[in-house]
């Protein structure tokens, strides 16, 4: 490659590199730098990280180990979010995509399911608050109809139930995304493969596991990547429902970072949480991209 061949691409890339450096790389590096400073801008090493981990709102595994209800701390809550929300979103998205593929009017039902993704998350949060309300909520209304009126309560008011209520509520919101990606993935599978398996006498179950699932691998990687990143960054829904409460039972990392920075004005600890969040999201994203490229 001669000099001219090197310079021309660099010339055209320069504006993009400049903008990314200014608006992405510099803020990230600066955030990491601030995470090592105290409020007087003095270098304090890992003190901010230690401070964050000493707070029960961020790290409180004792309740989990003792089998008690939340709060477990923001970091563990994000982990629980991933463990429950990711498989459920994947399952319902795939199931709906397959079930609605050949159904007349399936597109209309898909559009209805996808509404959860279209509405702003803040609005989604307010909707969830009403759904779980003891007096006005559709969930409690349903429980009363089926004779389970004793179970009714405002599900987002209790530390025991709020985290699960939020996770299940956001499955509804996020399923639309995985359904759409899987629907597109299903369209990309050659019909000849299904016809050949039918001729060979394969059962529907075997066809699903041997053809559909492997052929949807790229779509699955995209859904997992995007869902993981969303779960790690979750903020608005939690904020609008109980601001991380009650008693920190629904606190998540992004919200804790926000409160540290803008309510407590403690930018060192906020940057420490932001740095941990960046490392986690970048780590997951890099791994999934690697898997996608490899596949």
């Amino acid at each position: 490659m001669n000099l001219r061949q090197t310079k021309i691409p660099l010339f055209f890339l320069a504006p993009t590199i400049l903008l990314i450096t200014l608006f992405v790389i510099f803020p990230v590096v600066n955030t990491v730098y601030i995470s090592f400073l105290d409020d007087d801008d003095q270098f304090v090493g890992l003190d901010n990280y230690a401070e964050v981990f000493s707070r029960k709102y961020f790290w409180n595994p004792d309740n989990l180990l003792e089998g008690k209800p939340p709060p477990y701390g923001a970091l563990i809550h994000n982990g629980i979010w991933i463990v429950l929300h990711l498989p459920l979103s994947l399952f319902f998205g795939l199931a709906l995509a397959i079930l609605l593929r050949d159904v007349k009017g399936g597109a209309i039902i898909k559009s209805a399911v996808f509404l959860g993704m279209v509405i702003p998350m803040i609005v989604g949060g307010i909707l969830l608050r009403f759904i779980y309300d003891d007096n006005a909520g559709i969930l409690n209304g349903f429980l009363r109809i089926v004779g389970l009126g004793d179970l009714t309560r405002t599900w987002t008011a209790y530390p025991q139930t709020i985290l699960l209520a939020l996770i299940l509520g956001t499955v509804w919101i996020w399923t639309g995304f995985s359904m759409i990606v899987y629907s597109a993935g299903l369209e990309g599978i050659p019909k000849e493969l299904f016809e050949a398996s039918k001729i060979d006498g394969a059962s529907r179950w075997r066809t699903f596991w041997r053809i559909t699932v492997p052929m949807l691998r790229p779509a699955t990687i995209i859904v997992i990547t995007m869902t993981l990143l969303w779960e790690l960054k979750i903020f608005d829904i939690v904020w609008v429902i109980q601001q991380g409460g009650p008693g920190g039972a629904s606190m998540v990392m992004a919200l804790q970072m926000f409160l540290e920075a803008f309510l407590n004005r403690s930018f060192g600890t906020a940057s420490a949480i932001a740095t941990m969040l960046t490392v986690l999201t970048f780590g997951f994203a890099a791994y999934m991209v690697y898997r996608m490229v490899k596949s």
């Binding site: 209800p69 008011a157 209790y158 530390p159 025991q160 109980q242 601001q243 991380g244 409460g245 009650p246 008693g247 920190g248 039972a249 409160l259 309510l263 407590n264």
Partner: peptide, 22 residues
């Protein structure tokens, strides 16, 4: 003021609904 205020409000929300478990 904060961070006390936020903690006070949040802890009371939990106490109000789970007085026996708090």
């Amino acid at each position: 003021g904060n961070p006390f205020q936020q903690t006070f409000w949040d802890q009371l929300k939990a106490l109000w609904v789970t007085p026996d478990e708090t």
